[in-house]
Design a protein around this nucleic acid. Sequence first.
DNA 1: ATAAGTAGATAGTAATACTATCTACTATCC
DNA 2: GGATAGTAGATAGTATTACTATCTACTTAT
Lengths: 236, 236
Amino acid sequence: MRIAELSRRSGTSIPTIKYYLREGLLPPGTSTGRNQAEYDERHLGRLRLIRALREVGGLSVAATRQVLATLDEPVRSTHELMGHAHQAVIRPLTGSRSSDTDDPAWRSARQEAGRWITSLGWRVHPDNPALDRLADVLLALHRVERTDLIAGLPQYAATALTLAEQEVPTARDAGDPAAVMAAVVTGTVLGEALLTTLRLLAHEHVSATLAGYTPAQGPGCEPPAGDPGEGTPPRR
Amino acid sequence: MRIAELSRRSGTSIPTIKYYLREGLLPPGTSTGRNQAEYDERHLGRLRLIRALREVGGLSVAATRQVLATLDEPVRSTHELMGHAHQAVIRPLTGSRSSDTDDPAWRSARQEAGRWITSLGWRVHPDNPALDRLADVLLALHRVERTDLIAGLPQYAATALTLAEQEVPTARDAGDPAAVMAAVVTGTVLGEALLTTLRLLAHEHVSATLAGYTPAQGPGCEPPAGDPGEGTPPRR
DNA sequence: ATAAGTAGATAGTAATACTATCTACTATCC
DNA sequence: GGATAGTAGATAGTATTACTATCTACTTAT
């Protein structure tokens, strides 16, 4: 297919596709002339993945490129491979990495993070950037005086473990190594989006239930058709 | 205190504080002269909250302002209040809201989202923007061909419900209405950061365990001191 | 042959989040 | 009481990100 079709089928504008080509997010099509190239289904799939990572996963273009680069690397043992995919995906997700490592408060939080993981008995490589991220979160919780949330960490950890035990085997069984990589990437990024969105919805549900509403079939969850009426918290 | 102390104690540069003042994220200090103002502990707390929401929660300045504005509004019933706090926090978290509502594929995903929530028996207001976000996620999962993750949605929902049942009462019991608001905001944003970080760590742990490593006390999780040695996935 | 489409290059743009500087003061220390 | 440092408020400048637009020299379809 040519670029116009790729654009139409992926819902991405031609200039944007060209931008992704320039940035190395999308491999070039097979050239069939000085100014003509042919794209295939793999390009379409890659483009849809890019859009999913960017729009749903919230990854930057640079982070997306890193993640995609991992998908193109030669493959090794399953765990190593999963580790690799994870490393690629964790860094962007764990974000900016700005905290000054020299701040004693941060170093203390970083140690606290290590202690928590040890006490959970989790086998995690000490270089995992998520540990730094955990330190950031702990430090912020201290500063905002929500130590009760820190006390609830084991609960969160148990929940996270349940999730991982359900997600990791799914990814491992995805088939050939390339499919495993893809499953790790999409599962990690999109699974997070799914979970956090459902958590937000569950919050409203639980709050409504505690407030005394019957938890059964309420006014429904139809998409807004015409005038959506007004309810408890107006603001839309 | 004066702005220099506020800057030192919050770890935020004076120009940035002035910027937040201009942007209305931080209320002005009490003026004691034509070019002199006095700030107090409340300003410090607010500034720390801003930093937590921005750096750990990943909220934009505009989103942060919306969230903080909610904290300053007059207070109503607990559920309404929680709804309000949530609305303020959900929109930013559920992000860009870009998807074209006219796309039939999106409308279909949006209906699917509604059906899921109905089948879960969750009482959620049909205007909750998280429902649109759920549609985005479902659509992306379809496009990336991870319908297996969609099939696992009830599992995610159950996990989300467990979380909410633990978090919402905690926030409700925070004390006076202002404290409840603050607890909802910090709990929603920082709780998400905590959970997703732990999920990432749990992924590595489970992957390592499945790969045959003993899950007990491994090489530990000490902060990187000096040379952190090299392990399974190198890349740092 | 003419119109439409294309690759590749380069330049422009809108938004975001600061950062810097300037002016006219005020506080403070010796 | 004068020098020095700090401050509010205003305005302007900057770096980055993620596109978007345009241009040229083609190729392809009608």
